[in-house]
């Protein structure tokens, strides 16, 4: 029994890190714009696809594939911000409209990917080989384990960026009070562009790391978005520690629920837990200082 629970916990933590990093990407955009980007999973998917093209089709080295994925993710973020978000912003629609705009964007991106790369899953080899990491009777793939350092670096980098750099601080300011930020000379449009580019880049990097584990294809985006969104909410929207903790909680509940209670009820257990968490902590674990500016 101990080995079963140990295995389930390890799996849960790794799954949770996966949801957590996506929740962090959602948080970057939310912090600067209060928008929940429903195309976030598609950014992850595109990062994986870009890396796949370089590795499999162009036989590029791994690091170059990673760099290219990040560049394409940032470019995608920028394009979508300029074409869609900025266009919509002229009329200041309610935040609810942005969710459906980005949902429309996700349909477009996923179908374009389908036409360009077909319906087959794309995959490349794990960075450190196929051999699993085994401890006693508990094991996992080495690629999964890479999520841990990735997550720590991301958290450290983003915390530094938002706490100490001028742009990071401006983004937080704009999120708290857009009007006030404008008065002190912060260009909100530029911040929004930066947030989408940064989030796109980080998502694509996550996609680069995840593809050997999950594979990537046109249809994987929405599942990532939903779990990432749930993790971000459970942890407290906009808080990066919260995003990772929220992800970990969801991952662990999902793993224990499927392994110990019932795999048939896996999703019900996970989301019932999310609801209970929200009823107890209506603003998430790390309740954000930032009040939601606008009702949905």
């Amino acid at each position: 029994m101990a080995e079963v629970i140990g295995q389930l916990l390890v799996t849960g933590v790794l799954l949770g890190l996966m949801y957590g990093v996506i929740a962090v990407c959602i948080g970057i955009i939310y912090n600067a714009t209060q928008i929940i980007n429903f195309a976030q999973g598609e950014f992850v998917m595109i990062g994986g696809v870009a890396a796949w093209v370089l590795i499999t089709e162009l036989h590029a080295p791994l690091w170059l594939a990673g760099v290219a994925a990040v560049a394409i993710g940032a470019a995608m973020g920028l394009i979508i911000e300029r074409l869609v978000i900025n266009t919509a912003r002229r009329f200041r629609p309610p935040l609810l409209t942005y969710i459906f705009l980005t949902f429309g964007v996700s349909i477009i991106l996923s179908n374009l990917t389908m036409f360009a790369f077909g319906t087959n899953p794309l995959i490349f080899d794990p960075f450190l080989g196929r051999a699993p990491i085994v401890f006693e009777k508990i094991s996992t793939s080495s690629q999964y384990a890479l999520l841990l350092p990735l997550c720590l670096v991301l958290l450290a980098g983003l915390t530094f960026f938002f706490a100490y750099t001028r742009y990071g601080k401006s983004m937080r300011a704009a999120a708290v009070n857009e009007f006030g930020a404008k008065i002190v000379g912060i260009d909100v449009g530029v911040l929004s562009m930066m947030a989408f580019a940064l989030s796109g880049a980080v998502s694509a990097l996550v996609g680069f790391f995840l593809t050997p584990i999950t594979t990537t294809s046109y249809s994987i985006g929405l599942a990532f978005t939903l779990k990432g969104f749930a993790a971000a909410i459970t942890g407290g929207l906009g808080d990066f520690r919260g995003a990772v903790v929220g992800g970990l909680i969801i991952g662990i509940v999902e793993s224990l629920g499927a392994g110990l209670v019932s795999s048939q009820f896996q999703d019900a257990i996970t989301f019932l837990f999310v609801i209970v968490m929200l009823v107890v902590l209506p603003k998430g674990i790390f309740a954000s200082m930032v009040e939601e500016r606008d009702r949905l």
Binding site: I36, L226, L272, V274, I275, L278, V279, P282, R295
Partner: peptide, 13 residues
Amino acid sequence: RLSGHYLAIATLA
């Protein structure tokens, strides 16, 4: 009792 994005994820759940 929830609102905004928090209610969105709760109803989705």
